[in-house]
Nucleic acid binder design. Structure first.
Lengths: 188, 188, 188, 188
DNA sequence: GATGAATGAGGTTTCATTCAT
DNA sequence: TATGAATGAAACCTCATTCAT
């Protein structure tokens, strides 16, 4: 049996990628990523055959991390509002705690490197959230609007909110709550 | 120093940049942009000293184009709702008509090439919209929330809406109106 | 030090090398050769310490195969013409049957990887053929010409012939015979 | 008007390519070729878009050089034998004088980088030689053999001859003449 | 002995920018 | 001013070989 591919190294590469991409954009050099991950430049390619694949995997990793976070303490039996509020809050908390990760996630989302297949996989990862969000969409207030719009709007409104929290970190809790109220009003 | 000789060439370069960046991302080669603009590769640098400046100017150009569009038929004396609805609708119309421009605008916004100075200039361009939007923000419903959040939310919600229109172009009008209702409910 | 454990594996590597080199030239990756041979990339180097050695061994293997083929049914007691014709025909038959092997053999011959030592060994392998060919060279018609020229010319003329057979495979026998007549005329 | 692509540089690249390929095979680095040609590594690609194109152009250049050499003092009114002898001798002279060029030409010919299109162009370059060679092929002695075989055989026999001249350069003239006699006997 | 992950030099090609023409 | 050839620093990726397992 030869040396075995180490999950630690894989994780180190993805971590390094977040750091470098946050700093230099998607053009970040694979060599720099490898260096920061503490491996030889060529080694990166035993874990990800091309840069493109690395980026796609990174996207999935980031998405899965947020979803895991939301699922963790999900209040399955709470009221719809409570559940939606949980999604709202936990995503914003994650976004602020790991702002580089969020930044990279957005860059990837906007770019053309993420394949439809990857987008599909990412969507499939939404566990408890999906149930909650679709419950939300069935409300009268969103009648006649395309499925998925509620979720998309939530994401969009969260993204808008984040920038303001970044500028006034001390008012974090207040902004998060206040913005949720705005969102919730829209959904009623 | 970018002494501008022919406004036509300048415009041609910006147009070409939109096309190429929409196709290949911000990494689009200046040489390709020049070629598409029908000029020699070196000439581009007579109009824009560096690629970075080109991108910043492009961003301003795109922003100014949207704002001009909104200002054009702005219903200055209409009700607040009517005026906000105008902003909402005219932006979405522009986004759909010039989807490449919007795509590029988003890419630029997310990336790090746009300087704070450029962002400042872009903000300063909002004419009639600004008055309307700040009127909106002064409402009780947004009390306690940071200034600018309403505008940011509108932008974010529009971006979310656009993707759904792209997927169901025939329901365009209905989605635009429905989504506005959602937005307006949030603002009340 | 290439302690040979399994002759089957060794043979598999050489076979795989023929295939890959025929497809991609001498630049064929050792890893691909190993893969096709059904072994791990590192194992290849247990059998051949360097790629260069592999290529040299491969050259000898191919040469020895042709010579073995010629020796197999060699008409030791036939007339000189009959014996030479046997060499001519059996080489061409082999070349057509194993065209990849011939192609690789030529590539190796032309390149600089084959050492003089290997060339020497290859020459030493010519068994019955050598006797026949030197008999041919002693004829008056080749007087004053360097030793070995007859054999070289035969090889050259065969190589020229092969391409025509490849293009008109149905006339194979006729071309082989006709070309031999041309060659034989040259030798008389 | 910008700087103009200089034929001298193009020639320098091709010359450098001959030198480097003769030394290291077709794997010769484009950077090394550029360096030897006295230009920046990137400049090479303004003259030849890819290495493959460079190699194809190089092949044509070498072929055209030989053919030009043969055409130069071609004895159009001499006997067939005299004309064929001219082709024979002038090619061998060129091969010996520019042995690196010949070596590279052979490497290219054997490899797979030369496209069929290039081969076609190369064939089309044979001027006076073609007329003479086809006259040769119409002789009774080659009846029933594929068109082009005579020319191919001549090439092959010349190649065989060259190696012997390389080993005994002092007997050059004698070997050239002797080998031609052998060839001519084959053609009668 | 067999495996395949790890290495890092080296390969081709691209690109923003400069500058001779 | 306009041109596009020239530059050389990266960029991504491949590969022969080593060596821990």
């Amino acid at each position: 049996m030869a040396r075995v591919r180490s999950p630690e190294k894989r994780a180190a590469i993805l971590d390094a990628a977040v750091y470098e991409i946050a700093a230099s954009g998607l053009g970040a050099a694979t060599a720099k990523i490898a260096q920061r991950a503490g491996i030889a430049s060529g080694t990166l390619f035993t874990y990800f055959p091309t840069k493109e694949e690395l980026l796609n995997e990174l996207y999935l990793e980031l998405k899965s991390e947020v979803y895991a976070r939301m699922d963790a303490s999900f209040p399955h039996r709470a009221s719809l509002e409570q559940r939606v509020r949980h999604v709202w809050t936990s995503y914003l908390d994650w976004s602020i705690e790991f702002s580089k990760k969020r930044k990279v996630s957005v860059q990837l989302h906007v770019s053309d490197v993420i394949t439809t297949e990857t987008h599909r996989k990412a969507t499939a990862m939404r566990g408890a959230i999906d149930t909650t969000l679709s419950e939300l969409e069935n409300r009268r207030s969103l009648e006649g609007l395309p499925a998925g719009l509620a979720m998309a709007m939530m994401g969009a409104m969260q993204d808008a909110t984040i920038e303001f929290i970044a500028r006034q970190p001390k008012q974090r809790r207040q902004i998060i709550e206040g913005a949720f109220d705005v969102f919730w009003r829209a959904m009623r």
